[in-house]
Design a protein around this nucleic acid. Structure first.
Length: 304
RNA sequence: CGCGGGGUGGAGAAGUGGUAUCUCGUCAGGCUCAUAACCUGAAGACCGGUGGUUCAAAUCCAUCCCCCGCAA
């Protein structure tokens, strides 16, 4: 069970290992999204269609109808990765080995919906994945395997997701082996160390230049590749900032203190941020050199 | 029919009736101890496609394709 690209990586690795039989894949129903309100398949569904895997898209996994179907499938284990729906106890207890989940943090820290983004927002230098036996709590199950991943200074959420997916996929295969040969060891989570993350809110996307360069930089990378942290140009247009770098400098918060071939530097509450890649409203993302070249900003402009 | 922006030499832009401009990049040469700096020169665009209006269209009209922001 899974939905976004992160889940595809896990599914792909299970599928290609050929060590396990995938009797069915569950993903979120097709939803209208994107321009023109067109219906779009989830990444997991697309992968299944390309590889001939059976896909199920229940509106609600917990529905009686789907439960009947699940029972009929008789899975030995259900692997869950960013599926997007809560499983109830009936489902959790249905497979012989239960349901196991790949979570994008070193539990019990960063439980919840957006562990990867929050790890970056908080400037963590280390994150990781945890494979756990799901129980009815939110990411509270016993841990089967934990693997750490180093987070570099300029790493984006997309990059961290990729790294975690790769490590997570390997860990998942390992855990499945251990489960089937009885070697699996579980470790209970220490509730006292637990922290939770909630979904990112829309108003968090806007950049507050009054904050320190570090904090802003963390937001920018946490929001790449979705949904993008943005600010407004002096003409009121939105400008998404995809990549940045903390540099020395000072000035009125939000003021452009350099805009030339060397780059674009914006003063923050503390320190300054060198902008590396941007996307003006209605345009594709571009290197900041091109943006400055096209007269998008000048020294002295105030972003807000 | 959800709202909106846009498709101009490799890149980013200007140009809204008279066959195209700027910045960057590229190539060649020069200056320099040296350079991502500077100087000189060059190449490179049938202005997204197709029809139409006009003496004349990148510029007006119609239609199609593609890209992107927002909302869900």
């Amino acid at each position: 069970m899974g939905t976004p690209n992160f889940a595809v990586k896990i599914l792909e690795s299970l599928f290609e290992s050929k060590k396990h039989t995938i009797i069915g894949v569950v993903t979120q129903p097709d939803r209208v999204r994107g321009r023109g309100n067109k219906v779009e398949d989830s990444p997991v569904k697309q992968y299944c269609l390309m590889n001939g895997l059976e896909v199920y898209q229940p509106e609600k996994v917990k529905s009686a109808d789907f439960l009947v179907l699940l029972r009929k499938l008789q899975p030995d284990v259900i692997v869950v990765a960013a599926y997007g729906q809560i499983l109830n106890e009936e489902i959790l207890n249905l497979p012989k080995y239960g349901c196991i989940n790949v979570h994008g943090s070193l539990l019990p820290k960063y439980r919840g919906a957006a562990p990867v983004q929050y790890a970056l927002l908080n400037g963590e230098t280390e994150s990781g994945v945890t494979i756990m036996q799901m129980d009815k709590g939110m990411d509270t199950g016993a841990m089967l395997c934990k693997k750490a991943v180093a987070v570099s200074e300029n790493m984006t959420a997309g990059e961290l997701f990729d790294a975690l997916a790769e490590v997570g996929a390997r860990a998942m295969l390992q855990v499945l082996d251990e489960l089937t040969n009885g070697m699996a060891k579980t470790q209970v989570q220490n509730e006292n160390e637990a922290t939770y993350t909630h979904l990112l809110k829309r108003e968090m996307e806007v950049i507050d230049w009054g904050l320190s360069a570090n904090v802003i930089h963390n937001k920018i990378r946490a929001f790449n590749p979705v949904p993008g942290a943005y600010t407004h140009l002096s003409n009121g247009k939105k400008l998404k900032i995809w990549r940045s770098m903390v540099v020395d400098g000072e000035g009125e918060a939000g003021k452009v203190i350099a805009a030339d071939k060397q780059g674009l530097v914006v003063a923050c509450g503390t320190g300054a941020l060198k902008i590396l890649e941007v996307q003006p409203e209605g345009k594709k993302s571009m290197a900041v050199k091109d943006f400055v070249n096209g007269h998008g900003v000048r020294v002295g402009d105030l972003l807000k």
